[in-house]
Design a protein around this nucleic acid. Structure first.
Ligand code: FES
Ligand code: FES
Lengths: 147, 147
DNA sequence: TTTCATGTAACAATAATAGTTACGAAGCGC
DNA sequence: GCGCTTCGTAACTATTATTGTTACATGAAA
């Protein structure tokens, strides 16, 4: 099955934005992400509604951050993308009268809930500033290595 | 997005089988799961290949367990279903030359790996016997409750 | 007022999953 | 052996979710 890499993609876009002073247009970002400008707008719309980024129209318009990178966690972004479902697997549709189904769903549901909590905690503990710092170090090492 | 409830469904089927002495046909199980016999065979084929259940043809044929319920963990079943991917979200396709992508993928990948480990541990620690016991207790309570 | 850029709806393309049909092979009972 | 049952599997269709594309309206700057 195919994984949804929207979170990954949007983080990539945000890192690009973090490296710039001026706003980036949807077309710029679409080029970076190898996709379409409308897709970028669709995705970024969630972040804008969540107050993470802001968009401007007309000349000099585009996307820029609404607050410091250190105050934006991966969890914020994850939530803003509007994908509350983490797991591919999940319990079946509720069958109120069926005890078997309920037992199965409880066992699976509990396990998924635990795993999800771990994941959300990790996301909450990482900010965009952390991520930017991480890749800048890597980039510097890489550059030093190459020559 | 829609969740994949194959694990849930197959557990339901196995609980039905656990309640029976004689093998159950694909048609029987399809009726229980409200689906098609071919779909049941497709799903159960994985379990058969993993040595969890056995199938027999002709009169009196059908599906039955290959070993005691206490020796079958949810992890066994999960693996037998051939769905190694747990999460809907995931890193983007590898871009070897791109440091940003690598950083993003590492952060997300690590978090996912931790969460997945928790989930797998839970699955490994639960057997079909546990599940059967759980629902039998619930069923008894329910029956007592109803009268 | 022209140009640039987002906002959004509508539609097409793509892909994954599930369901269906059809037919062959294996096993049991007579 | 014969016929019935049941799995095994391929091929096809249906459904659904996601993504990509086109088109046009709106707002802002030069
Ligand atoms: S429908 Fe409830 S046990 Fe199968
Ligand atoms: S392509 Fe955007 S940083 Fe690598």
């Amino acid at each position: 099955m195919k994984r949804n890499s929207r979170l990954s993609a949007v983080l990539h876009a945000l890192m690009h934005m973090a490296e710039r002073e001026t706003p980036m247009t949807s077309d710029d970002l679409a080029l970076c992400l190898d996709t379409n400008a409308v897709v970028v707008r669709r995705t970024m719309a969630g972040l804008r509604d969540a107050g993470i980024v802001q968009s401007g129209r007309g000349h000099g318009g585009g996307w820029h951050f609404a607050r410091p990178l250190a105050e934006i966690s991966l969890l914020d972004i994850y939530n803003a993308l509007g994908e509350p479902i983490v797991f591919q697997i999940g319990p079946a549709t509720e069958m109120p009268g069926c005890v078997v189904e309920q037992s199965v769903n409880r066992v699976i549901g509990d396990a998924l809930k635990d795993a999800e909590a771990i994941l959300m905690a990790r996301f909450a503990g990482t900010t965009l500033a952390d991520l930017a710092a991480d890749f800048r170090v890597a980039a510097k090492l890489c550059r030093a290595d190459t020559g």
